[in-house]
Amino acid sequence: MNSSFIDIYRPIAILMIAALGFAVSPLVMAWLWSKKFSPRKPGPVKNATYECGLESKNDSFIRFRPEYYLYAIVFLIFDVEAIFLLPFAVAFSGLTVGASIAMLIFLLLLVEGLVWTWRKGVLTWV
C-alpha cells in the first residue's frame, strides 16, 4: 500500500525537481559567471533611483488628504451603478412593473447616498 503511494507520486516529484532546476540553474550559472569573470561595479549614481536620468528629489511618500477616500468611494458606487443601468435600459420595454420598481428603489438608494455626501460637503474639493 505504502510503496504504491510512492510509485504514484514519484513522476510528480521528479517533474517538480526538474522544473525547479530549470528555473534555478540559469540563475546559478549567471551568478557563477559573474563571480569568475565580471567584477561588480556599484556606484552612487548607478545605485540611485531611476527617474529618467533626473536626480530624484524630496520624499516619495507623499500624503493624500483622507477626504479623497470618500470621494473615491462615491465614484466607485456610481461607476457600478452605470454598469447596472445599461442592461436596465436595454431591457426596459420588456420589464414588469415589479422589476422597474425594484430598479428605481436601487437608484433612489444611491441618490439618497449622493444627497447625504453632498450635504456633508464631500464633493467640495479642499
Binding site: S38, K41, G43, V45, K46, A48, Y50, C52, G53, L54, E55
Partner: peptide
C-alpha cells in the same frame, strides 16, 4: 547630465 546619468545607471 541626464544622458551621462542614464549611461551610468546602465549595467555592464
Amino acid at each position: 547630465p541626464q544622458i551621462v546619468r542614464l549611461y551610468n545607471q546602465m549595467p555592464e
